[in-house]
Amino acid sequence: MKIHLKIWRQQDAKTKGKLVDYMLDQVDHHMSFLEMMDTLNEQLIVKGEMPVEFDHDCREGICGTCGMMINGQAHGPVPGLTACQLHMREFEDGATIYVEPFRAKAFPVKRDLKVDRSSFDRIIQAGGFITASTGQPAEANTLLITHESAESAFDSAACIGCGACVATCKNSSAALFTSAKISHLAKLPQGEKEAAKRVLKMVSRMDEEGFGHCSNTEACEVECPQGISVLNIARMNWEYTKANLLKD
């Protein structure tokens, strides 16, 4: 396959970036998208140019490291996939592909397609945990959790923290990410105790980090590689209102 790439190149957060054209003419359609990027980088390095920096690690869709806008869509055109699981068979021979970083005020560009997502860690630090120090817990089967509750908590907990939801949202909102953690923990009896405190702190940290308000377009769910549901956002809003109403 022949592929025409238009890739965002940017030296660092302060420098202005631009789209640069690259041509690849021996792309195998079995290649993953990132393997195609590896091939490009090999060619650039040997020519003495700087390779395109992009984030990636596990290359099996679970670590949440990779993330880029491919033809304007987070992780590319196929629903339910991360960029590392996308394969070149999804593109036509001769296609032009635009590759850009996840863009959001709270995700400053480090270089090229690499962005700083440490704001997500800080949202979790604000309260995305259960206070259970090592050694304290009681025997696991003393706490019964129905099959349905465990499965539903898992559905929320499956978020990989890639940031596709933020990059997709026209307000750059982190509502889906934040709400997934709030819901995961609130749905379980272990997490209920701190639910009110958690939601207030996490939502307030989300705002402080510069993420926008939920735009209610539900685009985040569509682009989420893990299929995290927007019902989590509804849950977060409910938990938030409840916590505020019952406060003191």
């Binding site: 050694g135 959790i145 099959h147 509750s149 907990a157 995961h184 272990q190």
Partner: peptide, 19 residues
């Protein structure tokens, strides 16, 4: 297993709620 459950790890459960 006790520690992980306390942290909120959503292990698979039987319908009655046991692990």
């Amino acid at each position: 297993i006790d520690q992980a459950v306390a942290q909120g790890v959503p292990f698979a459960r039987e319908y009655g709620g046991y692990l």
